[in-house]
Nucleic acid binder design. Structure first.
Lengths: 212, 212
DNA sequence: CAGCATCCGCTTTGATACTG
DNA sequence: CAGTATCAAAGCGGATGCTG
């Protein structure tokens, strides 16, 4: 990206991460910790391979990521955020918070991957009833299962499924996203076809964190 | 901007504000409250006029800004952030926080305007000695004066000058920026030509807020 | 002068094909 | 799997012109 040429921290930050796709690459690495080239491409539907390659090079030059050759048996390169790159997390979380209302205007054909939802659920949610015992919600939608653990007043999202969830939520990803992030209520979600199995009260405990 | 086509709040946010210049326009409006087309152009050195025009239209369509015709005597259009646009402030602040280390690599020819510094000082700084009496620092650099009021444990930056500052700081904007944001110490700033007049202790009270 | 619209050369992006 | 090469289309930057 051509520099804005301004002695301003915001402009300087955008000089580094303001290019198209760049912050979405960072999002992928924040979720996946370490990722191969192909993992990144899969998580960024529509990116051109030359652009991914360019961006990774720029991010490495800027000290945001490192690429490490995995040891011989794996014969691949892994990309990982540096400490500097990890420091981008608050920016991504603020962007995600701000972007939630924009989900409403989404197209039918929008791509969806469960780990994107996991990142959003990992921030900005608290347990509305911290006094109640811990509970586990299994989300079955999209390309992979997702588990929400509600305990100690906090909500933690982890990728992968569990057998002993207190509530299993199954359905089209658009319904699930609207329910968890979009602010529709449970009745509407069920009316649109969401399937619930187990203790429905667990869902009420998910509460967007009040903004500071 | 072409949509990323992802059902992800981060991607949706970037669909709206991810274009080049867009977040810098928001920065200008966050600082200036209401601005004319020309004010914006002055605050965004290097922007092409057609791009500014395009971006303003896009932002208005997205509900981020409104343009209002000022009453007859002024015969101009004013641009202002909506509530939705004001909600972008945390993103800009996080970007600014992250961008501070990038200032070090700045070019000699980078543009500078005092209100950019004001925005940075308006966030992330606390008074290291809240027990001491209020104090006022006048910054004289760049294109306009800047006043820092340190009181009640907080630091407030306002544009404009004052007569009764406890400390007057004068010098090249690069030295001032390095001192206030870049982490060089007072001795180095003075060695590089910074001029101080008044109670120098006031500067010690400016302390970057510990990150959460 | 304020607020654009238009035109043009250049750069970036996107889609696809190809290689070690 | 992990990229590089190619090329058309879109976007950007700079200059200029037009309208109240």
């Amino acid at each position: 990206m051509r520099s804005y040429g301004e002695l301003c921290p915001i402009a300087k930050a955008l000089d580094v991460v303001g290019d198209r796709w760049t912050l979405l690459i960072v999002r992928e690495l924040l979720i996946k910790d370490a990722a191969r080239y192909t993992d990144l491409r899969n998580g960024l539907p529509g990116i051109a391979t030359n652009l991914l390659s360019d961006r990774l090079r720029q991010l490495e030059e800027a000290g945001v990521i490192v690429s490490e050759k995995a040891p011989p048996p794996i014969a691949t390169t892994l990309f990982r955020l540096t400490r500097r790159g990890l420091a981008l997390k608050p920016i991504l979380h603020e962007l995600g918070t701000w972007g939630v209302p924009e989900l409403a205007g989404g197209a039918e054909t929008d791509a969806f991957q469960t780990h994107w939802l996991a990142f959003s659920m990992g921030n900005g949610f608290v347990d509305a009833h911290p006094d109640r015992p811990p509970t586990t919600i299994a989300i079955r939608t999209g390309d992979a299962p997702l588990t929400l653990e509600v305990a100690d007043g906090r909500v933690q999202a982890t990728q992968g499924g569990v057998d002993d969830a207190d509530l299993v939520v199954t359905g089209d990803h658009r319904i699930v996203v609207d329910l968890l992030l979009g602010g529709i209520d449970l009745d509407e979600a069920v009316a649109r076809g969401l399937q619930l199995e187990g203790n429905v009260d667990a869902l009420e405990r998910l509460q967007p964190r009040p903004r500071g």
